[in-house]
Amino acid sequence: MLGQPDYNIADLFSQLGLANDEASIEKFIKEHKLDNSERLIDAKFWTDKQRAFLREEWERDAVWIEVIDELNALLHDPDIS
């Protein structure tokens, strides 16, 4: 979108209050895999605040949606280690 910020996975981790360096992101993804029936926004490892942010942005299809989709895919992909 024109004029919209272009967020990346490190930006999302920062927004969620998580360490956002490459090693920390890789570790988080490796340690927080979701099975195919579990929705990203329902994962038990989120705090209430993190879950609320993800849910709100997901439902609004807001500027964060592309990077949230990316995280969702990474946490559900069994081939990513």
Rank of each mutant, 00 (worst) to 15 (best):
D79A: 11
I41D: 02
I41F: 05
K33Q: 13
D35M: 09
Q4N: 12
N36R: 12
M1S: 10
V67S: 10
Q4A: 11
E59R: 15
E31Y: 06
D61A: 09
E57K: 12
A52K: 08
E56P: 01
W46Q: 04
K44R: 15
L71R: 04
G17N: 10
E31H: 13
W64A: 09
Y7K: 05
R55W: 11
D69Q: 12
D35Q: 10
R60V: 01
Q15H: 10
T47F: 10
E22K: 13
F53I: 08
L74C: 00
E22N: 11
G3E: 06
E66P: 09
R51D: 15
L54P: 12
L18W: 02
E70R: 07
F53C: 03
L74N: 11
V67A: 01
E22G: 05
F28H: 03
R51A: 15
L18S: 05
I68P: 13
V63F: 11
I29P: 01
F53V: 07
I80T: 13
K33C: 02
K30W: 07
I65Y: 10
D48V: 03
A73P: 05
A10H: 03
E31F: 00
K49H: 02
F28P: 09
H76I: 04
F13L: 03
E26F: 10
D77W: 01
Q15N: 02
D69C: 11
I80Q: 14
N72L: 00
E56F: 02
N8S: 11
W64N: 05
R60F: 07
E56K: 01
E26D: 14
D48N: 14
E59I: 07
Y7T: 05
Q15M: 01
A19H: 09
